[in-house]
Simulated scan of single mutants.
Amino acid sequence: MQFSQLILQRYSVRSYQQMPVEKTELLKILQAGQYAPSAANKQPWHFIVVQEQKNHEQFSEIYHRNWFKNAPVYIVICADHDQTWRRQEDGKSHGDIDVAIAIDHMTLQATELGLGTCWICNFFVEKCRDFFQLPQHIEPIAILSLGYPADEKRPDKQRKSLEEIVHWEKFSL
């Protein structure tokens, strides 16, 4: 599949088939995140995979949506703030940006493999931190739900026009 087709195929899946994700496919998705670029090549990410049923049920309380409980796999993507590159001028950490790039790579790889994902940022961070007993410098940034989509109907992607979001040579509204 060409990249231009791949980006049009990806969408946020909220209904999954109850079938396991093969480990070989899961490893391809994780490797896509591993090979994402990061500021100063710091690679400040950690990927926590949750797929065992005993952990699955308890973990699903971290995000209160019924559809979330049906995802066969969760990947929690964390930033290691001791490893992030910081902009010299203002000290801005690029951990969130680096992690976002890794997640994007994983979502596109999953799409190419026929799997669906949903990128979740609005979850109970402290519950997540407690569940995994994360040290203070490791921040859970997002959860990626993963599995085979149950619904073949892809939603129509509504996007702003290029005229609304592209500025040539200077910013103007």
Rank of each mutant, 00 (worst) to 15 (best):
K69H: 09
K69T: 15
K69C: 06
N70P: 00
N70K: 15
A71H: 07
P72F: 06
Y74N: 04
Y74F: 14
I75V: 10
I75Y: 02
V76M: 08
V76N: 01
V76W: 02
I77R: 01
I77C: 15
C78E: 01
C78N: 10
C78K: 01
C78M: 08
A79V: 11
D80C: 09
D80N: 15
D80G: 10
D80F: 10
D82R: 15
D82Y: 11
Q83G: 08
T84C: 04
T84Y: 02
W85I: 00
R86F: 11
R86V: 05
R86D: 10
R86E: 11
R86P: 03
R87Y: 12
R87Q: 06
R87I: 12
R87P: 00
E89K: 14
E89T: 12
D90P: 03
D90Q: 13
D90V: 04
K92R: 14
K92C: 04
S93Y: 15
H94W: 15
G95E: 06
G95R: 09
D96N: 10
I97E: 04
I97G: 00
D98H: 09
V99A: 08
V99D: 01
V99C: 09
A100F: 00
I101D: 00
A102Y: 02
A102Q: 00
I103T: 08
D104E: 10
D104M: 06
H105M: 05
M106P: 01
M106R: 07
M106S: 06
M106D: 03
M106F: 07
M106E: 05
M106T: 01
M106H: 01
M106Q: 08
T107N: 07
L108T: 03
L108H: 01
L108V: 04
Q109A: 11
Q109E: 13
A110G: 03
A110Q: 02
E112H: 14
L113Q: 15
G114V: 09
G114A: 13
G114D: 10
L115P: 02
G116F: 04
T117Y: 01
T117G: 06
C118D: 02
C118P: 13
W119D: 04
I120F: 02
I120N: 12
F123Q: 08
F123T: 07
V125Y: 15
V125W: 00
V125R: 14
E126I: 11
E126Y: 06
E126G: 03
E126L: 06
K127L: 09
K127R: 14
K127W: 05
K127N: 10
C128G: 00
C128L: 05
